[in-house]
């Protein structure tokens, strides 16, 4: 996966978790929590969906890496580089 693929993968997960939010306007450098109505249960779901769809483990200590879209991509791309997008 390229950085763009990883971004799309994260957007795909966010859209499933929060179907009422509009992620087109997402600003990559700003905290996800400040832009959308997400709580700790949602962040758990992001992690669980990453595991379910791409078989990667994000330990609790690393949750803080998921704070902005850019930090998500920085953290996830090395883990996902050998994978294809899930449909």
């Amino acid at each position: 996966m390229t950085r763009d693929d990883v971004r799309n993968a994260v957007i795909g997960i966010l859209t499933d978790i929060a179907p009422d939010e509009d992620f087109d306007a997402l600003k990559d450098e700003e905290k996800l929590r400040d832009q959308f109505d997400l709580d700790s249960m949602d962040f758990l779901d992001i992690v669980m969906e990453l595991r379910k769809r791409y078989n990667i483990e994000v330990p609790e200590a690393d949750y803080e890496q998921l704070v902005t879209m850019t930090s998500c991509i920085d953290y996830l791309q090395p883990l996902l580089k050998n994978q294809q997008m899930a449909s």
Partner: peptide
Amino acid sequence: KGVRSSPLGKLLKQ
């Protein structure tokens, strides 16, 4: 509908 932070909203989304 649309409130995500209330108990009902939380359980619906989860």
